[in-house]
């Protein structure tokens, strides 16, 4: 039982990176495919599409920072439960926010390709989704710091 609890602690520590990486991969893939498609239809401005399609990669960076923060607490019988809860739920939040941000970016690329003047505004939905990922990131750090070893 003790080993199982410790394993859960490690799972929680690495979950933000693993789930964040899965989400970022899916999000960047969706957005990147839209960017590639848009490049077939426009004559210039390719760079902004490629740059925009990298937006969902921030979630995995947040995951790495959270992982280091949780590792600093140390995995033990006393901390494993808290690490598991915080890490897993933050990972899930990062996973879904990256996936849906990818869809928002894909829609933004599609819209701004047809109407370049809405480029700035079309990023707003993706930026709002980013905001939710930041909430999960910041509060995971705050809660992680309050875990008593």
């Amino acid at each position: 039982m003790e080993h199982f609890v410790i394993a859960l602690g490690w799972l929680g520590t690495f979950a933000p990176v693993a789930l964040g990486a899965v989400g970022s991969a899916i999000g960047c893939s969706l957005a990147g495919q839209s960017a590639c498609g848009a490049m077939l239809d426009v004559e210039s401005g390719y760079g902004k599409f490629v740059g925009l399609s990298a937006m969902p990669s921030s979630q995995v960076i947040y995951g790495i920072v959270i992982m280091f923060s949780l590792m600093g607490v140390g995995v033990s019988d006393a901390t494993a439960g808290a690490l598991f809860g915080i890490g897993l739920l933050t990972g899930i939040a990062l996973l879904f926010s990256a996936m849906y941000q990818g869809q928002a970016v894909a829609a933004a690329i599609s819209a701004s390709k047809n109407k370049p003047e809405v480029f700035g505004l079309s990023i707003a939905p993706a930026a709002i989704v980013e905001g939710f990922a930041v909430f999960a990131f910041v509060f995971a750090l705050v809660l992680g710091a309050s875990i008593v070893a």
Partner: peptide, 14 residues
């Protein structure tokens, strides 16, 4: 499923 993104983004707006 995801490949529809590139196809639809490559089509000009009607």
């Amino acid at each position: 499923n995801n490949a529809y993104h590139s196809l639809l983004a490559s089509l000009p707006h009607l």
